[in-house]
């Protein structure tokens, strides 16, 4: 009983000391702190303040009455989502698409970057790189339109497979093909652009290592395996940790453009659901959409923190 006030005192003293030290630090590094200020203001203003909008996921939000005037319903929308029979389908569709994306798309830019790195002619490499970036700048709407023309029932690929196999493959409406089409389009569009970060990491590799390895008789593949890949390993892990954070993000524009009644069983992901409920066909359920979006964000945070921990456990630097 006697010890407690003493402890509180020391705590307060400690607190005071810390604050004094902080003030000293700020005074010393005032220019650095000033440099940080615009970034801080940006995050508070554009990232943290808008978060108050999350409130609507606990309300029956009607735009006209506003956030303050709408009825408070607590966890109604969360309960509603999990009591609806189809929520597991949305989640499964999201996870399958995301995992396919990680397995098939994620390695693509790494492989391409390694291939580019092995090129001898610098000029040819530069031209090729530029050409590889082009698809990234083509709007997904255009990509989907091109797909419709090539893979539709009067398109060249459709006719070709029909002649080769004897029966057509319905690229645009068969639910079994849908995910492969999405992954294929993503690889076509984003692989080239994705190489940038890996190519940047590759420039840090010490050239002397290659020379030494060559002296020791290492062939091309051995050099790639023992020098290049370890050198960019931390970048790969970093990208993977970031990717894990968006494992529930499938985007909606691409999927909505490719969706139709015949493939809806596989094309409806959480993102599409949020869009549909908020603004799309069933539009106007702002609160419901916000609630599902909020759940998604919570899972994303858990995934980033979790995969970062795993990265640390495996001896990698990870994200932070």
């Amino acid at each position: 009983m006697i010890a407690q006030p003493n402890m509180a005192l020391t705590h307060r003293q400690k607190h005071g000391a810390y604050r004094r030290k902080l003030m000293q630090d700020i005074k010393r590094d005032k220019w650095l702190y000033l440099l940080m200020l615009p970034g801080l203001v940006y995050f508070v203003l554009f990232k943290y303040l808008p978060m108050y909008g999350i409130v609507i996921s606990f309300e029956n939000y009607v735009p006209f009455t506003g956030v303050a005037g709408s009825e408070w319903v607590g966890l109604k929308w969360f309960k509603y989502f999990f009591s609806s029979p189809s929520w597991s389908r949305y989640l499964t569709n999201t996870l399958i698409l995301s995992l396919m994306n990680i397995v098939f798309y994620f390695p693509a830019p790494i492989i391409l970057a390694l291939l580019l790195n092995e090129m001898r002619s610098l000029r040819y490499k530069k031209v090729l790189q530029t050409l590889l970036y082009v698809p990234h700048f083509i709007s997904i709407v255009i990509v989907v339109s091109i797909t419709f023309v090539i893979f539709g029932s009067s398109g060249i690929v459709y006719k070709l497979t029909e002649q080769l196999l004897g029966h057509p493959i319905k690229y645009l409406s068969d639910p079994g093909v849908f995910r492969w089409m999405i992954i294929g389009q993503t690889i076509w569009k984003e692989t080239g652009w994705g190489t940038i970060i890996f190519l940047a990491a590759l420039t840090n590799v010490d050239v002397q290592l290659y020379e030494a390895a060559m002296m020791d008789g290492a062939n091309r593949f051995q050099r790639l395996w023992h020098i290049t890949l370890p050198a960019i390993r931390s970048t790969i892990v970093l990208m993977l940790v970031l990717r894990m954070g968006s494992v529930l993000d499938t985007g909606y524009d691409h999927l909505i453009l490719m969706a139709n009644p015949l493939n809806r069983t596989v094309s409806q992901t959480l993102d599409v659901f949020v869009y549909d409920q908020g603004l799309g066909k069933s539009g106007g359920n702002y609160s419901y959409a916000a609630a599902v979006g909020l759940m998604k964000s919570v899972v994303s945070v858990i995934m980033v923190v979790g995969s970062n921990k795993i990265a640390h456990a495996l001896g990698e630097q990870g994200l932070y």
């Binding site: 009607v62 735009p63 006209f64 009455t65 539009g283 106007g284 359920n285």
Partner: peptide
């Protein structure tokens, strides 16, 4: 008959 129209009409928009 859209959700947001009926809700907004009831809310007095």
């Amino acid at each position: 008959r859209a959700t947001n129209i009926i809700n907004s009409a009831r809310a007095g928009a």
